[in-house]
């Protein structure tokens, strides 16, 4: 039971309203993987019992392969294979083939996933859009797009990297889905000094996303060192748009800072400071 959604985070992990963008930030040592999995779980798991709920997920991951997500999803009772078979889940793999030589990347492509072969933005966009339209064609319903570490494209593009083009691609993708969840690294060296183009591009991209986002969940390590029973701190802040909308959605944008602990069995505990 501990593996399910932590009660404190439940209001933040439900399906976001239409056109919204949710940003999850991570640092070295405090990864967003467990949070992404809980997001997937809270969105996809209810549909298993209820055939009317037709929310679907297109998942793009640039740092991790499907095996990792399947393995850790299974720990919290999320069967991605089954969901993929029911056309509720599509995976776009941005790790296995992006920079590997062709002959090495060719073999064994499992049906539920698309493998990105080229880091060109146009190609990436068309592949992801292809995945979205495929899953839309199967059945009608809301599509949630999850982009895991899109910032990798920016870092590996070097001189050719174009923050504006990447932002445009993101807008294009967001147009065709219900809502978007993104994870981006927010390590101090990447955003603070901005001496190299790598750093300034990253900072520009992250700030741009953060301003567009409706809600931001940032993970970081404890400021005071490490503790045996705390993995890190999660801070939830609402985006700049959410302030103007004073309607019923205020519950999900309540700002909060809580601690979390990921256990050895994959279960997550979330608690207030001092509890």
């Amino acid at each position: 039971m501990a593996s399910r959604i932590p009660p404190l985070l439940e209001p933040y992990l439900s399906l976001p309203p239409e056109t919204s963008l949710i940003l999850l930030t991570s640092v070295l040592g405090a990864s967003t993987n467990w949070l992404v999995l809980r997001f997937l779980h809270s969105i996809l798991a209810p549909s298993e019992g209820n055939p009317d709920d037709d929310t679907k997920v297109v998942f793009v991951s640039f740092m991790r392969d499907l095996v990792f997500w399947k393995e850790n999803g299974r720990r919290i009772g999320l069967d991605l294979d089954k969901l993929a078979a029911r056309k509720k889940f599509a995976f776009v793999d941005g790790l296995s083939g992006l920079f590997l030589p062709k002959q090495a990347a060719d073999s064994r492509v499992a049906p539920p996933q698309t493998i990105l072969k080229s880091p060109e933005l146009q190609n990436v966009a068309s592949q992801i859009l292809g995945g979205i339209s495929q899953i839309k064609a199967a059945a009608s319903g809301k599509v949630l797009l999850v982009l895991d570490q899109l910032d990798l494209l920016l870092a590996t593009a070097g001189d050719k990297s174009d923050v504006v083009a990447l932002g445009e691609m993101l807008l294009e993708l967001r147009e065709s889905v219900h809502a978007t969840v993104m994870t981006v690294s927010a390590d101090y060296p990447l955003v603070s000094e901005q001496r190299t183009s790598l750093e300034s591009n990253h900072a520009e991209f992250l700030m741009g996303i953060a301003h567009q986002a409706d809600s931001i969940m940032s993970l970081r390590l404890l400021d005071t060192g490490t503790a045996r029973d705390v993995s890190g701190v999660i801070r939830v802040t609402q985006g700049s748009h959410a302030v103007s909308e004073s309607d019923g959605s205020s519950k999900r944008t309540e700002e909060k800072e809580v601690l979390y602990f990921v256990g050895g069995d994959g279960g997550v505990k979330v608690f207030e400071r001092g509890q």
């Binding site: 392969d65 083939g97 992006l98 920079f99 990798l152 590996t156 190299t196």
Partner: peptide
């Protein structure tokens, strides 16, 4: 960055 980070990413791909 584009050269060395692409290499690290490719290695990661191979490892997985």
């Amino acid at each position: 960055p584009e050269i060395v980070l692409q290499f690290f990413h490719a290695l990661r791909g191979l490892l997985r």
